[in-house]
Structure formats: C-alpha cells, structure tokens
C-alpha cells in the first residue's frame, strides 16, 4: 500500500520538493547576508537603533515571501494532495479497481492518509525551519512572534496545519466526489479555520493576563500610539495609548486604551499633567514622571511554546476526527 501511495503521489511530491529546493536556495543566500548584517549591528541594539530599521527595510520582501510560503504551503498541500486523494479515484472510477484488491478500504485510506500527511508535515516542517532560521534576526528585532500571522508561520503549528489540511482535503473529496469542488472547499474551509483560530480560539487557550502597566520611560518607548481620542480636541477628550509587550501578545491589539491616574480617573486633555504649550501631548520625559497607568490584557511571552503545543495538538485532534469521519464515510457510502 505504501508503495502504491508513493507511486501515485511521486509527481506531486517531487513538484513540492522542487519548490522547497528553490526556496531553500534563495533564502539561504539572502539569509546569510541578513545574518551577517545582523551580527554587525551594535550589541545593544534593541530594534530601535537606526541600523535595525535599515536591516528590516532591506530584507522586507524575502521576509514576506518566506512567511507567505509557510502560510500557504498547508493550504496548497490540502488542495493539491488531500482533495484528489479520494475524489480523483471516484472521478476516474479507479476506486472500483483498487477497492477490490485484497486490502480493505480502511487500510487503503489509512496508508494514503499517513503517507500523504507525513509528506505534508515533512515539506511544511522543513519550510518552516528554513524560514525560521532566515527570519531569526528580524524576529529578534521585531519581537512580534506571538502576533497572529507570525505565530502561524513559526514553530510547530505549521505541522498541525499541514496534517489537518490533508485530512480536510481527503474528507471533502470523499463527500463531494469531484476534485475541483473538493479543492475549492478545502481552501475555503481551511482559510476559515485559520482565520477563526487566532480570532476566537487562541486568545482563550489560557486566561489572559490583566495588568495595570505603569507608564515610564521604557513602556512609553514601546507605545505604538499615544494621543487623545475624539473628533474634536476639547478639555474632555480622553488620553489614550496602546502598548506592545515584547514577544507577548496584547489581546486588546491595536485598540488604544484609556490612560488613567493612579487612583483610576481617566486622564483627559483638560486634566493631563505636564501640559504642553502647543496644545499637543506632553513630552514623554515629563509623563514618565507623572505616575500614569494603562490597562492591558495580554498573553505573556513565556506562553509562546505552550500555545504552540496546544494549538498543534488541537489541529492534530481535528485531523484525527476528519480521518475517522472519512473512514466511516468510506465504509458505509459509495453509492
């Protein structure tokens, strides 16, 4: 069975291997330059020094290309390896040939799923490793690996995505019986799950940490936004800010939060300390002394790997459920 699976699957696998090889060549060459550029940065550069900005800017395109490859690989594998697995047999009628050999349908499916999922995880895993190595300097400068899109393309989770996509494709193929329809549905469902996961599931894998962060020189340095809200600036306009937790995941995201005094009162334009002459926000140096606070919900950086494991496990469980559903469908239907 493994031989047959490999024989039928060879061409697709070699095509993927070729893409992987091309990506490897490109990212290794560019990556070596990037790594030496990173090594030449001053030792105390924390992502804000001018050299870091230049480095990030120069390697933005390969960085995006690499991330896009890891992001797309499971989806494409699901559509091109998973969906045809059963649908193609049904379309060409060869299921009537193969299911009458001396191998039960369940075993046939198990071998196909295992070999294809293993190949999918291998290809995606290698790609993820490669891109992780390549992007390592930039990840250290950006400190954003917990952010939704970054989380998806690093570490373990791409393996889970790949296995899930294969099982999803196979299942869609069985119930839709047409390869193209199965491919489309696989892509659509996979994308939907990938969008739902960071929006609805991942934030709740562990209760978020709620913390009142004191605004000082360091935290103000990571503030991505700082100012007053409201259409017109008046005495009652609240002061708002949004903070980044380095390598953590701020769940309030880009939504700026109200800045409060130590006693909980919101700071407004009228009541702000260190009033600036021009009517704009006060200087950061002055504010850092003013004992102001901001509330932040976030997943801290040390939860990164637990979250990777949990999410991978969730996807593998979904894979197993789909495989079971496909086995059940294969045994009872086909009419």
């Amino acid at each position: 069975m493994i031989w047959l699976t490999w024989r039928q699957f060879r061409a697709q696998f070699l095509a993927a291997a070729a893409v992987l090889a091309a990506a490897t060549g490109y990212l290794v060459i560019v990556g070596l330059q990037l790594h030496s550029g990173f090594d030449n940065l001053p030792a105390d550069c924390d992502g804000l020094c001018p050299g870091a900005g230049r480095l990030i800017g120069r390697y933005r395109n390969p960085y995006y290309i690499g991330s896009a490859l890891v992001l797309l690989a499971p989806a494409l594998i699901g559509a091109f390896w998973g969906a045809p697995m059963i649908a193609r047999e049904l379309e060409t009628g060869t299921h009537r040939l193969i299911w009458n050999q001396g191998v039960r349908r369940g075993r046939w499916l198990a071998a196909k799923l295992l070999v294809t999922a293993a190949a999918a995880m291998l290809v995606t895993g290698l790609l993820s490793l490669l891109v992780s190595w390549f992007a390592d300097p930039l990840d250290r400068l950006n400190q954003d690996r917990f952010q939704p899109l970054m989380f998806d393309v690093r570490g373990l989770v791409p393996l889970g995505y790949a296995a899930f996509a294969v099982a999803l494709g196979a299942c869609a193929g069985l119930f839709l019986r047409r390869t193209t329809a199965a491919m489309a549905v696989t892509l659509a469902v996979f994308t939907a799950v990938q969008v739902l996961m960071p929006l609805a599931v991942r934030p709740h894998l562990r209760p978020a940490v709620h913390s009142e962060v004191a605004l000082n020189a360091t935290t103000l340095g990571t503030a991505r936004m700082f100012g007053f809200s409201g259409d017109t600036l008046g005495p009652d306009s609240p002061m708002i800010a949004s903070l980044d937790i380095p390598d953590g995941w701020v769940l309030t995201g880009n939504e700026p939060q109200a800045v409060r005094h130590a006693d909980g009162r919101a700071v407004t334009f009228g009541t702000q300390p260190c009033r600036a002459e021009a009517g704009g926000p006060a200087t950061r140096e002055c504010l850092a002394q003013a004992d102001l606070h901001i509330a932040v919900d976030y997943q801290p950086a040390d939860r990164y790997w637990p979250f990777q494991w949990i999410e991978t496990a969730i996807y593998l469980a979904l894979t197993a459920a789909l495989a079971a559903l496909t086995t059940w469908g294969l045994r009872r239907r086909l009419g």
């Binding site: 039928q8 061409a11 060409t92 009628g93 060869t94 009537r96 040939l97 009458n100």
Partner: peptide
C-alpha cells in the same frame, strides 16, 4: 471484479 469501462490508473 472487472468494473464497467474497465478503469485503470492512466498515469
């Protein structure tokens, strides 16, 4: 079993 239209793997 020899199915109708005798399917085989074209590739």
């Amino acid at each position: 079993f020899v199915a109708q239209d005798t399917p085989t793997y074209a590739a």
